[in-house]
């Protein structure tokens, strides 16, 4: 190997590009919204992809892109403060720079879903990557049939994109429902886990003509999948995005593997029938 093959002349796969913070604001006590821009170009992502964001000297972390690629000139992320690196992201101010590699991974194949009804389940921080597909569908509204969007959060303090959820609620071109697991006196809406919203829309669903998207905490998937299967959804029509530790993003480091599958390469977006045989998937 390597005698004259030139493979050492490739650019480093770990080399980030500079990225600038356009604006940022807190969404919850631990989640912060960011708008970023690259120097004179778009990130070039598709709905559901992620990128590796870094601060030289602090470290790097995989973060989902939350904005739709239909939004040009900048892209958006929501970063949860969970450790040293993400805490440093939370200290960034508009105009600050950081590094980005990517986009990486598979995407929600929205073009293949033209003509279908769409049913989105976004729970907790799962709404962040799902929002890229939701807004893509809304920006290409005539390409799709009915759109149902079900969101769930653990409590009122964990709600994300509050203004945007309000606009989805008022938008006549989709049916939006939200619930929180634990109610509170200020909360007048639905309470209960996300699956409690399904009976409210069930009579308007066409399982054989609908693509269902599920993104949320690990515990949620099996419950939603069970309900979908009971309604007659085929596994090929159920799309999930799975969280794993995608350290390198380029299929080398091994951290994100589910069985033999590298989530950073073959995921994070999978159809349910594509992962049903993997013992570590759900």
């Amino acid at each position: 190997m390597c005698e004259g093959c030139g493979c050492h002349e490739h650019e480093s796969i770990y080399m980030p590009e500079p990225l600038t913070v356009v604006q940022t604001h807190p969404m919850t006590e631990r989640d912060r919204f960011f708008e970023f821009k690259l120097n004179g170009k778009d990130l070039g992502h598709k709905p559901g992809q992620f990128a590796e964001i870094s601060i030289p000297g602090i470290g790097e972390a995989p973060i989902s892109v939350s904005s739709s690629p239909t939004k040009k000139g900048s892209f958006e992320m929501v970063i949860r403060k969970v450790g040293k690196v993400t805490a440093a992201f939370h200290d960034l101010k508009p105009g600050d720079t950081l590094g980005v590699r990517g986009p990486f991974g598979t995407h929600f194949p929205m073009d293949e879903f033209k003509g279908k009804d769409l049913l989105f389940f976004g729970a907790g921080i799962g709404l962040v990557p799902l929002r890229s597909a939701i807004n893509y569908a809304l920006d290409n509204r005539s390409d799709y049939g009915k759109i149902f969007l079900l969101c769930g959060f653990t409590d009122i303090s964990q709600r994300l994109f509050i203004d945007e959820m309000e606009s989805w609620k008022k938008n006549p071109s989709l049916e939006f429902l939200e619930t929180i697991d634990r109610g509170s006196p200020q909360w007048k809406g639905n309470t209960g886990v996300i699956t409690t919203l399904i009976p409210k829309i069930k009579d308007r669903l066409s399982p054989r003509n609908t693509k269902a998207f599920i993104v949320g905490p690990p515990v949620m998937y099996k419950f939603v999948i069970l309900e979908l299967r009971n309604m007659g959804f085929r596994d090929a029509d159920v799309i999930v995005s799975l969280e794993r530790r995608m350290k390198c993003g380029v299929g080398k480091c091994g951290h994100c593997q589910i069985d033999g599958v590298y989530v950073c390469q073959e995921g994070p977006v999978f159809t349910l029938d594509g992962i049903a045989h993997l013992v570590e998937a759900l």
Binding site: C2, H8, I13
Partner: peptide, 22 residues
């Protein structure tokens, strides 16, 4: 080492490994 060569060059080429290997 042949396996490592393949792991670091398949799909995305890792120039750091390849430079040392070369």
């Amino acid at each position: 080492i042949a396996m490592l060569d393949k792991a670091f060059t398949e799909n995305k080429i890792d120039a750091h490994y390849c430079t040392r290997r070369e």
